[in-house]
Design a protein around this nucleic acid. Sequence first.
DNA 1: TTTTTTACCTAAGAATATTATGTATATAAA
DNA 2: TTTATATACATAATATTCTTAGGTAAAAAA
Lengths: 110, 110
Amino acid sequence: MKNSQLYKGSLTTIVMKLLEENGRMYGYEITQKVKEITKGELKITEGALYPALHKLEAEGVLEVEIENVDNRLRKYYKLTEKGTAETVNRLAELEEFIKNMQSIVNPKLA
Amino acid sequence: MKNSQLYKGSLTTIVMKLLEENGRMYGYEITQKVKEITKGELKITEGALYPALHKLEAEGVLEVEIENVDNRLRKYYKLTEKGTAETVNRLAELEEFIKNMQSIVNPKLA
DNA sequence: TTTTTTACCTAAGAATATTATGTATATAAA
DNA sequence: TTTATATACATAATATTCTTAGGTAAAAAA
C-alpha cells in the first residue's frame, strides 16, 4: 500500500470485505481488484498481503482451497464461519473510524 | 489509540488538523480534545502522542512554546509555515483514503 | 526472444503504536 | 488529612504492520 500511512491497519478489513462480497478470491486477484476499485490509487503490495492472508488463515478467519489453473498454483481464500462473524465487527469498526475521522476533520458537522 | 487497528497511521494527521483548527495546543489538551470530539471512542495514548509530537517538531512541522501554568510545565505546539502547507496535503490524503475505503465497503455507490 | 503478466513466497528493516513505567504538582474525595 | 484522581510531561521494551528488496516459475504478449 503506497503513499499515505493512513492505510496502515486497514488491509485485513479490506480483504475480509472483498471475500464477503465475492465468495472466494486468490491473492493476486485481491491486489487487482483493489487497484480496480480505487482506480489505481491504492496498490496492495504482495509483501503485505501474503503474510496477512497466512495470519488470517492461522487465526481461523480464512480457509484456503488450492487449485491448479493453467499449470499454475492458485490459492483461493474464503471466510470461515468465524471469519464471517468477525467481518461484521470489522465493518462496524470501519464505519466508526470514518465517522470519528470526519468529526475531527469537519467539527462543524458533528 | 485503543480498539481498532484502523487508527494506526492517522495520529499525525489528527494532530495537525487540531492545531490548524485551534492555533496552538499542548499534548494533554490534544488527548482530551480527541476524547471529547469522538465521545470517548478514540483515546490517544501518551506513549504514542509524545514521540509523535517530538518527531513532528524535529521535522519542522511543529514548533513549541514552553510555558509555566500553575507551577506546572506546559508545551504548546503550533504548526510552522511548512506544517501548515503539509496539513493541506494530509487532509487531502485523508479525504482520498476515506473515499477509497467507502468504495471498497460500498461498491454499489462507486 | 525478450518483456510483461500471472501467481506464489520470504526476510530485513522501517514506522507506528501498545504497554508499562516514571516524575511531579494540583485538586477533589474519603 | 490522607488518599485518589486529574493534570502534564516523558521514555523503554515490545508488538504489529508495512515497505523494500529480493526469489521461483509459467503463460502470454511484444
